[in-house]
Simulated scan of single mutants.
Amino acid sequence: MDDIRATPFSAGLQRLRAEALQDGEKVIWQGQPDGVARMMMWRFLWWIGCPWLLLTVAAVRADWIDQAAHPLAMLGVAMVAAPLVMLLQDLQTLYLITDRRALILRTAWGRRTVSQTPFEAMDAVFEILDIGAGAGHLNFASRRSPRSPDTDYTGRYGFRCVRDAPRLRDILEAARAGKSRRPPQEKAAVLTGAAERTA
């Protein structure tokens, strides 16, 4: 099982992880997005943003623009900062595969969120999208809202920018298959425990 990288956000992720896990739930794998790979995916914003800022500064000094200077400068700053903001968000994200579900935990920007996908709600076949440099997206659900940071524009949902995505697919498939092979008496015990917690 992969470890959480030691960052100022690690303790908060560990606390959220402890709160999110259900009684008796076993963590099979945990890891974080490859923030550097995601940042490199969006580095083209630097190629646009840096010249944009230089041209804006030159235009201001030459008195070519007046009232438009502020919004143009802010747009340039946003393009330059966007990849770094994504890196910070990835440092505050934790992916989990348990014996019951897949979890995405976040403590980014002061908001603690837990997104879960039970095995039963996953697609029959998991999809891997390679993004280069040994990283990729592991999609295990579809028809999700594209407003989620873990969903692409087509509604495919899963772990974004992870290292060795084929290995994670195998782990997730094995975890789901293991649950489907669980003995009937063990399934009944799990269902009974869930009903008791709900009552």
Rank of each mutant, 00 (worst) to 15 (best):
M1R: 10
A6F: 11
P8W: 09
R17M: 10
L21Y: 01
E25Y: 00
E25N: 01
I28Q: 08
W29Y: 05
D34A: 06
M40D: 01
M41I: 04
L45K: 03
W46K: 05
P51H: 11
W52K: 11
L53P: 13
V57W: 15
A58P: 11
A59M: 15
A62W: 11
D63I: 10
A78K: 08
P83Q: 06
P83Y: 05
M86P: 00
L88H: 04
Q89T: 04
L91C: 10
R100T: 05
A102T: 08
L103M: 13
R106H: 07
R106Y: 00
T113M: 10
S115L: 11
Q116E: 15
T117R: 11
E120W: 06
A124K: 13
V125H: 14
D130S: 13
G134Q: 11
G136F: 03
N139T: 10
N139A: 14
A141T: 11
R143G: 05
S145F: 00
P146R: 11
P146A: 13
S148G: 13
D150V: 03
D152T: 07
R160E: 08
V162D: 09
D164F: 05
D164N: 13
A165G: 03
A165D: 06
L172I: 00
A175V: 00
A175G: 01
R181A: 10
R182Y: 02
P184A: 09
K187Y: 00
G193T: 01
A194P: 00
A195L: 10
A195H: 01
T198A: 15
A199V: 04
